Amino acid sequence: SEEEIREAFRVFDKDGNGYISAADLRHVMTNLGEKLTDEEVDEMIREADIDGDGQVNYEDFVQMMTA
């Protein structure tokens, strides 16, 4: 549901600035027990970053979650 997606976005957007940065993503993945290299984190950001601004905004996140 849209509310679940919004809630998930809030979990990833640690600093609440409306964007998921590589640092935000790394933090959440580490908490989930996933040890990722910087390259892996950057690749995840690139794949999710639809508009190419280097971070994942809510619209990018929705597209990723509903793809």
Results as ranks from 00 to 15, higher is better:
V28D: 00
T30Y: 13
A23C: 07
R10C: 03
A8K: 09
E47H: 15
E2N: 07
E4F: 11
A23Y: 05
R26H: 06
D53Y: 11
D15A: 08
I20F: 01
R46L: 06
Q63P: 03
M44A: 04
I20H: 00
Y58V: 13
V11R: 14
E34D: 12
G54M: 04
E39L: 09
T37R: 06
L32N: 02
V28I: 09
L25G: 01
Q63H: 13
A48Y: 11
V41Y: 13
E39Q: 10
D60L: 15
G52L: 10
F61S: 00
E59H: 08
V28H: 01
R10W: 03
D49C: 12
K35S: 09
I5W: 14
A48E: 03
Y19I: 04
S21D: 06
K14T: 10
T37C: 05
H27F: 13
R26A: 04
M29G: 00
N57C: 14
E2V: 14
T66P: 02
A67D: 08
K14I: 11
M64D: 02
E3I: 09
D53S: 13
R6C: 05
E43Q: 14
R46E: 05
N31R: 14
K35M: 12
N17D: 07
K14M: 09
Q55T: 06
D15H: 08
E59A: 06
T30G: 08
G18T: 01
L32P: 00
S21T: 09
D60M: 15
D13S: 02
E7A: 14
E7L: 10
N31F: 15
G54V: 04
L25A: 13
G54L: 04
L36Q: 03
T30D: 08
E40G: 04
S1Q: 07
T66G: 08
D51V: 08
E34P: 14
A23N: 10
F12D: 00
M29C: 03
N17G: 05
I5S: 01
E59L: 09
E47V: 15
Y58L: 07
D15M: 09
T30K: 15
A8W: 10
L36C: 07
K35N: 11
A67S: 13
E4R: 13
Y58D: 00
A22E: 08
R6I: 06
F9K: 00
D51F: 10
H27N: 10
E39P: 05
V41D: 01
K14S: 08
A67P: 05
V28R: 00
E3G: 07
E39S: 09
K14H: 13
V28Q: 01
G18S: 03
R46I: 04
T30E: 10
H27E: 09
V41E: 02
R10F: 03
S21V: 03
D53R: 11
E3D: 11
N31H: 13
Q55Y: 14
E7G: 08
V56P: 01
